[in-house]
Design a binder for these strands. Structure first.
Lengths: 347, 347
DNA sequence: TTGAAAGCGCTAACAA
DNA sequence: TTGTTAGCGCTTTCAA
């Protein structure tokens, strides 16, 4: 027996097309056509129906529409990037590109758990998402689920794609070029590279671009120093590079912003000035880190929001039946210049 | 005229209940009952239907079910926290609590834009979400949309609620108590508080708890130093606290981890040892920051994942028709002990 | 024990 | 110009 002291809120029943039709004194079909700009009828009737719909606050039931149209105006975003470092900017771009088309996004974090991943995929499929975008925290690892042969189109963005799938990634080599060329342009001559673990594909892509640019500019190439993605490694690397060496670097290109932060701190601690003695560039443009270093860090931005926008729009065209060429498309990075590289050095 | 060189992938038509029924040689109604454990029939029939469903890979169309049940097993998460610092752990908790109940989450970032917010809310409502959870980046600001009198239940989590709504927030005062009491327990005597801008409600809640605990322990209370939420402010505060002062603090409780990071760095730069000379505690337990300080930072965790879980479950019970008492429920924080406070000091 | 029929809210042929 | 009818995929009386 329910107690009466706690009022159970009662939610108003939504207004249906039937209600509108009745109120306007027409059939449901006519009402539907009036509201969808279909069919032929007097402007007067159409307007009257519209007006009653408006006054009743009618909003069509998407579920009913979707059932009929076989299209739910819903997409799923699958990720294993718990902290959202990469998936949130991406999400933001996707959402951005799709809101005004009426498409909403299911966000599902699958961690590294295939069972969890399967649950999410099943739930999404059952809800008849129009398509799925897969993303993750690194470009060279698969999500823990098989997304091939689904009943809906799939796009990979910033994660390892299946063969023959449509995929978008950032152009890591291009991003590295931006950084190293920036150093060259500023007149730096001894440019070194401190990066993450060799197990990451991006580490090699960036390192190769680093070598290429230096060679193109006739500058000496030092083997990149590989370590972890941490500040601590940035510190250690500085020790390796500067302890009792005669030809010290005047520029450090770092594999991510955390390493760069460690490098900047370590340089300051040994009395070296950034940017005057040594210039530093990071990667990822993680604002919270890049803006807190002293001085603020120049960094390569992977432009993940644009990547997301691109992925979203492409998914939509796939949903619309347009074929997209399979393969991996690389999107350009941006160099965000702050104060860690200084102005051009003279002669 | 479509060109043939680019094969347009064709997606298989989903298996419907009708297909299952036909294959099993029964009516759709029977098939439905068999799969839903409803009605009465021979175990043999039921099993046969189940088996054919399984073999055909049948999955019920959620849209159709939702239309009928008037329940979509979908909720919306509204946020203005672009970077997801707070909304992602929350999301994670919500999702966690709801996946195995088959509920999926629409994530919508509304920034500070009322128009965008309205679009998202409308889209969610049209898609017949069962309920909405509102969250944000601070506890004392409203989202830029009015969520009262919606057709679905709304829960506020970590954002300013409407009056009479159901809301969950972290217990900031309690969290501050944890920190300051920890210092007391370790024998620190001159504990100061460096926090964010006075415009934030949490700043006052935490400051008051700070004062209370010190008073309870008979320790001297210094007025909290208020500034910005940045590392730079942490540096400045240290200058203010330590420059030419005679009775220097032996413990600093910081309003967030970034301030704490600034404090730790500034202390080290002036030759003070953390934790031996000065203990430091942060707030937020943002791992990326807290684990990178030297030494790693002890910090108050708002336990947002638990908050999300709670919010998700409560929303679900609201959806189920159970009344929940309106009001703001505060959930306890956790102290995550790392190495910035040291061990108990002797007498 | 099973099935026929109605209906969730909407759209789209087709008739009138 | 408008309305009738059928049907999207499913669940649920109710009758057989």
């Amino acid at each position: 027996m329910p107690s009466d002291d706690q009022p159970v809120p009662v939610f108003p029943k939504p207004v249906t097309l039937r209600d509108v039709a009745a109120q306007a004194g027409v059939s449901v079909a006519t009402a539907s056509k009036a509201l969808n700009d279909q069919g032929r009828m007097t402007a007067e009737t159409r307007e009257r129906i519209r007006e009653t719909a408006r006054s009743l606050g009618f909003r069509p039931n998407s579920l009913a529409q979707s059932l009929l149209r076989r299209r739910s105006f819903t997409v799923g975003l699958l990720t294993n990037d718990t902290y959202g470092r990469f998936s949130l900017p991406l999400m933001s771009g996707i959402s951005d590109a799709l809101v005004d088309k009426g498409v909403s996004v299911f966000l599902c974090n699958v961690e590294e758990d295939p069972r969890l991943g399967q649950m999410h995929v099943d739930a999404m499929l059952d809800k008849r998402v129009d398509g799925i975008i897969a993303t993750g925290k690194r470009i060279d690892r698969h999500l823990p689920i098989d997304l091939s042969n689904l009943r809906v189109p799939v796009i990979y963005a910033f994660t390892q794609p299946d063969p023959d799938a449509v995929a978008f990634v950032s152009d890591d080599a291009g991003g590295a070029r931006l950084a190293v060329e920036h150093f060259c342009r500023l007149g730096r001559r001894r440019i070194v590279h401190v990066s993450g673990p060799a197990s990451f594909a991006v580490v090699h892509a960036r390192a190769q671009a680093y070598r290429d640019v230096l060679a193109e500019n006739g500058l000496p190439v030092t083997e990149p120093l590989l370590g972890s993605w941490s500040e601590a490694w940035g510190h250690q690397a500085v020790a390796q590079l500067f302890d009792g060496k005669s030809d010290r670097p005047d520029a450090v290109f770092c594999g991510n912003d955390q390493i760069a932060r460690g490098v900047i701190d370590a340089l300051r601690e040994r009395g070296l000035d950034v940017p005057n003695d040594v210039g530093v560039i990071g990667f990822d443009n993680w604002e919270i880190v890049a803006e807190a270093t002293r001085p603020p860090l120049t960094s390569v931005d992977m432009n993940l929001t644009a990547l997301g926008r691109e992925a979203g729009l492409t998914l939509l065209s796939l949903v619309g039946g347009t074929a997209a060429a399979p393969g991996i498309r690389k999107l350009p990075c941006l160099l965000v210049v702050r104060h860690s590289c200084g102005r051009p050095m003279d002669g």
